[in-house]
């Protein structure tokens, strides 16, 4: 059992958890993820490790409540336990000094981007960060991103905060103006966003890394459920990734594959929402 040491709500649907997992904390590097199972009847889901503290024996996870499992997880409080935490999994992000780079995060993807940005900053890169969200509330970790970036651009789809538009708008600006000298791009967010970033950087021939959130069961290379097509070859996101050269990724295929269980997810979500409502009613009466 893995105890939740603290929980903080970053937005109405996004929570940050610090979890006691000393063995994971000890070995974790930027880019690693864990597989989490919350309850006995639960599913196994991958979550990127945002931060770790080997001395305290803790890891930090940031979770957006979008389906049953993440909603259930977000009902958990400090002192509660997660049944299973396995990791650190996946290959760590290759951290090099490229010179100047752009780090692009969309929505909760910024949580996954943050540790990588920090490590890239420590490696001596000049960092231009772009963080976006549908609306102001979904722009997260701005303060932390500012701490490890030389400049930060913020975008929202609805213009409620920062520049109105999407993350590729400031990125295009960075790439078209040679004085920024962008040598590489790291992008993490929803698949359509990563695809858009990839299409843009391809035009400029700038090396781009993305982190793929494929559906996983075991997370250790056993099931092949997370298979993705990279440069025409089958790879497993869990053990060969999760990061890949964006220009080689078949995004359209992964977008379709990630919809494999939408009907099931909707059913589980509806059932859970009803359960929550009936529990709340019982508590109220």
């Amino acid at each position: 059992m893995f105890q939740i040491i603290s929980k903080e709500d970053l937005a109405s649907t996004i929570s940050k958890f610090v979890i006691h997992a000393p063995l994971v904390a000890r070995k974790r590097k930027a880019g690693n993820f864990v597989i989490v199972r919350v309850i006995e009847s639960g599913e196994r889901i991958p979550l990127t490790i945002v931060d770790s503290n080997p001395v305290e024996g803790t890891i930090t996870l940031i979770v957006q409540a979008i389906g049953k499992t993440t909603k259930l997880l977000c009902t958990k409080k400090a002192g509660d336990h997660l049944l299973d935490v396995l990791g650190p999994l996946g290959n760590p992000t290759p951290i090099e000094n490229h010179g100047a780079i752009a780090c692009v995060g969309g929505g909760v993807g910024t949580a996954e981007l943050y540790p990588i940005t920090k490590a890239l900053k420590d490696a001596g890169n000049v960092i231009y960060s772009i963080i976006g969200g549908r609306t102001k509330e979904l722009v997260i970790l701005e303060h932390q991103m500012r701490e490890c970036s030389d400049e930060v651009f913020v975008t929202t789809d609805d213009g409620s905060y920062g520049q109105k538009g999407i993350v590729t708008d400031p990125l295009r600006l960075l790439l078209t103006q040679p004085h920024f000298g962008i040598k590489a791009v790291y992008a993490i967010g929803p698949l359509p966003m990563m695809k858009a970033v990839s299409n843009l950087t391809k035009e400029f021939g700038i090396k781009t890394l993305v982190s793929l959130n494929a559906i996983m069961v075991d997370g250790t290379g056993m099931c092949g459920g997370c298979r993705v097509t990279i440069g025409g070859k089958m790879k497993f996101a869990c053990v060969d990734g999760p990061e890949f050269d964006a220009h080689q990724v078949d995004f359209d295929e992964l977008i379709l594959r990630n919809r494999s269980y939408v009907d099931f997810e909707r059913l589980a979500d509806e059932r859970f929402t009803k359960e929550l409502a009936s529990t709340a009613q019982k508590v109220a009466s």
Binding site: G42, R44, G224, G225, F264
Partner: peptide, 26 residues
Amino acid sequence: YSANEFLTRVNLMMANKFPDFDTPIR
């Protein structure tokens, strides 16, 4: 599916008992 994934979803994750268990199977 790979047989591994198909069997793991059922044998380990109890996908045959969805939605009482959360792991789905097509």
